[in-house]
């Protein structure tokens, strides 16, 4: 795997606040690389330093082996950017915006084709101000793809979108990768990072506290799966503790939580309950996720 982005000991301070505190990582060509962490963790500062929109205080950075601080326009030609906060003139129409932004680049994608792919064809004559939040976001993705970029930066792509629109965005991002582009995204939704990213860097207070594939991060925790159910007729002694897959059982009122890390936890417990003829309700399994990883690494919950 070739690294397309290299960051070494990046540091950036605003007045007295240390936004990014010496981080290093590389992004491989063709992957979806995610940066997750709470608001203020330093994600946007990092991404905007790489894009050349902000100057780092110290550290080395390169993208396509170019320096963002000195070769900004050459880099801009080859990357696509969706900013966390930006806008277009209120009265510009969707198709005008695409044609306008295409004219800023040497290499151009077909605007009509992009409109079609992002489901904006019917909106092409609408003014920017009349678009819904999701439509605006799709337009910004279209603008980020207008120069057929090699790397696409998506900063807080799905913030403020409803769950359905968010899922549609995930499909779009996978599409972008399918076309052979590298994707660098930031999000404060752990679920989004887990579902979408090949590799995830977890940021907290300007530092990378973990970096790996989502699966490896979760596995590294050694956190157990949980099986949760209620017993409407009260809890007799279940003797689930004796099952080899079960590590411990917690009971509070009629609610039971069974912990275990081995394969087959769910089926073993279910069989035991059936065999004993015990009524149970609302059974669900809870897998450890990136949220648990964050909690374990920082001692805090991620808040939305």
């Amino acid at each position: 795997m070739t690294s397309i982005i290299k960051v070494q000991d990046l540091r950036k301070t605003y007045d007295d606040v240390v936004a990014v505190d010496g981080i290093s990582f590389e992004v491989a060509e063709g992957e979806i690389f995610g940066m997750v962490g709470p608001n203020g963790a330093g994600k946007t500062t990092t991404i905007e330093c790489i894009e050349g929109l902000r100057n780092a205080d110290s550290g080395q950075m390169s993208i396509f082996d170019l320096d963002p601080q000195h070769d900004r326009s050459r880099i801009a030609e080859r990357i696509g950017i969706q900013l966390q906060q930006s806008a277009l003139p209120a009265r510009i129409r969707v198709s005008e915006a695409l044609v306008l932004f295409a004219s800023f680049y040497q290499r151009q994608a077909d605007p009509q084709e992009l409109l079609k792919r992002l489901g904006l064809t019917e909106k092409r004559s609408s003014a920017y101000a009349k678009l819904s939040g999701g439509q605006k976001q799709r337009l910004f993705i279209a603008l980020a793809l207008i120069n057929s970029p090699e790397v696409v930066f998506l900063d807080e792509l799905t913030t403020g979108l409803d769950p359905q629109a968010r899922r549609a965005m995930w499909d779009l991002v996978r599409d972008i990768r399918e076309q052979g582009r590298t994707v660098f995204l930031t999000t404060h939704y752990m679920e989004e990072a887990e579902r979408l990213c090949d590799r995830v860097a977890i940021l907290d207070h300007g530092r990378i506290v973990a970096l790996d594939t989502p699966e490896a991060l979760i596995r590294s925790l050694g956190v157990e799966s949980r099986l949760v159910f209620t017993l409407p007729n009260g809890s007799d002694d279940l003797s689930l503790q004796d099952l080899p897959q079960v590590s411990r059982v917690e009971t509070s009122g009629d609610r039971v939580v069974v912990y275990g890390s081995k394969e087959g936890l769910a089926s073993a417990v279910l069989n035991a309950l059936e065999d004993a003829g015990i009524d149970f309700q609302d059974l669900r399994t809870e897998q450890p996720n990136l949220e648990d990883v964050f909690l374990a690494l920082t001692g805090r919950e991620m808040r939305e």
Partner: peptide, 17 residues
């Protein structure tokens, strides 16, 4: 107002001088 809305910021991400 273009600056306040973030329109200028969006233009600045392009190679445009």
């Amino acid at each position: 107002s273009l600056r306040e809305q973030g329109v200028l910021r969006r233009y600045r991400t392009t190679p445009m001088n």
